[in-house]
Design a protein around this nucleic acid. Structure first.
Lengths: 155, 155
DNA sequence: ACGGCTCTTGACGTTGACGTCAACGTAAAG
DNA sequence: CTTTACGTTGACGTCAACGTCAAGAGCCGT
């Protein structure tokens, strides 16, 4: 994986983005690689930031929002008011994420439902068509959909 | 909540979007309200579609992707090839959602971690400032799991 | 018939997140 | 030293997902 520090091409390759994307992220203050002359040098911390950014993207956050989140991670302790503000921000992010997780769980359950009906219809068709049973086409295991409803929430 | 069928203004209001958004969704085939003359009439099924669409948006899906997903919900049984294709699509969606869920869980764990440190720092500050302990301000509970301190990327 | 309201269809503007291209520096290889 | 690959900064293009007018149709109560 080459060796630190990395070039822009290396990190881009490693993270599956283009160098243009990386530069854009730098413009937006999401990463701030060292500069040797004009070239960018990416250190491990830059890679950590990048992976946080990309995870944020996978979650559908806007870059601006992602910036605020990752900035929270390496914020200095600061004074009490700052800390209280930060905790408040964290709680908001948490609420957001928990809503998303609930959305995901519900969607997953519905997909399970649709798939079950599909497989039933498919079974009927193949049976009518005189096909041998054939293994389940795909090794899906019926997962116990909801592990303990540890967190019944209803917002 | 008025009475079915609803006008575009009513559904827009109910779902917290603008009528422009609703019309755009219709253009994109996400909803197809009945027409009485030139006016749109939204029936319960349109509202269901809309809520599915908005949930998809909360999850950060693109409208095109959302359309394919919601279309899966009320697809006709069709023939075997169709069904197999549909099941495959569902499995892909599921994999995607499960990735997102993992991302969310990890982010939540990290947020817990940051918040814990915040509260510790805050406690130190207020103690130094001679404040009473004060109750935990917010009834959060510890959610297990320490993510590895390393880069943890999976692309 | 008139003003006022809601709804309609364009058409163009905007914002975020890049892609693309041009023109140029720089560092290692032959 | 020249080539070649990689790097840099603009500047402009693009695409999705709407926002924002503009201009009109349809109906309502007075």
């Amino acid at each position: 994986m080459a060796t630190p520090p990395w070039s822009i091409a290396e990190v881009a390759e490693d993270f599956g983005v283009t160098h243009r994307t990386v530069r854009y992220y730098e413009d937006q203050g999401l990463v701030s690689p060292e500069r040797r002359g004009t070239q960018r040098l990416f250190h491990p911390r830059d890679r950590v930031r990048l992976s946080l950014v990309l995870r944020g993207k996978r979650l559908g956050f806007a870059l601006e929002e992602i910036r605020r989140i990752v900035d929270m991670y390496d914020e200095q302790p600061g004074e009490a008011g700052q800390l209280r503000y930060l905790i408040d921000q964290i709680d908001q992010r948490r609420a957001d994420l928990e809503q998303r997780r609930a959305d995901i769980d519900q969607t997953l359950a519905e997909l399970d439902d649709v798939e079950t009906r599909c497989r039933r219809d498919l079974a009927v068709l193949t049976e009518a068509g005189d096909q041998p049973p054939a293994t389940l086409a795909n090794g899906r295991r019926r997962r116990g959909r909801r592990p303990p409803p540890e967190e019944t929430q209803g917002a």
